[in-house]
């Protein structure tokens, strides 16, 4: 492998000294198998140790290294320098406040994640002695795709509606919400409907579909949002026809 040089333009923002984010250029030697993340690590190790960015697994499973690469939301570990001959621009994820350099503030998403109750709420509590909650492969199939989300937030950086108004629950949280709703062991979709049908819910989406395009795990959040529009519309018109209260 021959070693070449790439110019990496990296967004810097150090709140104690910078008024606004700016781009700093670094010349980074690279080989064909080097990811953008490895380029950033080279900068931190060899050129400027003050550069801040999140990363962990290096294999597209932890969801930490989401950033804009030449303006497109990407995982830095899954994006290769060889695909950007000459220069590559690396910036913090769009639509989020910047904490420092390439590190964004995740509080908004964390709060949303909590709101959707991203865990199985059993239809009926089962005693340990009754054994496990069984599920057929067909039942697994109904939600498996949506369970691949790694919370990397590329879909939020891609979503123009979230960019315009961050009160929107957003593609990632809705895909996860859908994942739990579709799980045969879960019985809380009615509780989650309040959020889906709310003004902050699915109807913010104007079906742009870029969220699904940028997803590194091939989740289809746009599909989850659309399916829940239908469910929310059904709930809107049929809610008075539904029986209230529970069987004892």
């Amino acid at each position: 492998m021959t070693e070449q040089i790439i110019r990496m333009e990296v967004m810097r923002y150090r709140p104690e000294q910078d008024e606004a984010p700016w781009l700093q250029s670094f010349d980074v030697p690279y080989s064909d198998d080097m990811s953008v993340l490895q380029g950033l690590n080279y900068i931190k190790d060899e050129l400027d140790e003050s550069l801040s960015f999140r990363w962990s697994c290096r294999m597209a499973i932890c969801g930490s290294c989401g950033m804009m690469v030449d303006g497109v939301p990407k995982l830095a570990c899954k994006t290769f320098l060889r695909d950007y001959p000459g220069t590559v621009r690396v910036e913090a994820l769009h639509h989020f406040p910047i904490e420092r350099d390439l590190v964004v503030v995740l509080d908004d998403f964390m709060e949303k994640l909590e709101r959707i109750q991203p865990y199985i709420i059993p239809r009926q509590e089962q005693a340990l002695s009754e054994g496990e909650y069984l599920q057929t492969p067909t039942q697994l199939e109904r939600y498996a795709q949506f369970s691949s989300c790694i919370n990397c937030l590329l879909c939020y950086a891609a979503c123009p509606q979230y960019g315009l108004d961050s009160s929107f629950l957003g593609p990632g949280a809705i895909a996860l919400l859908h994942r739990y709703n579709m799980d045969s062991r879960d019985g809380a979709s009615e509780q989650r409907m309040e959020l889906v049908a709310a003004e902050e819910g699915v109807f913010h989406c104007t079906a742009v579909g870029y969220c699904s395009e940028v997803c590194p795990k091939h989740v289809d959040p746009a599909n989850a949002v659309n399916l829940n529009k239908t469910r929310a519309a059904g709930d809107y018109f049929l809610r008075f026809a539904k029986p209230k209260g529970r069987c004892q």
Partner: peptide, 19 residues
């Protein structure tokens, strides 16, 4: 998102749009 959730009226318009 902490304020009480208000149900969106969008289904009416979205329904007409879809139909």
């Amino acid at each position: 998102m902490n304020r009480p959730l208000k149900r969106s009226n969008a289904p009416i318009f979205w329904g007409l749009f879809g139909a």
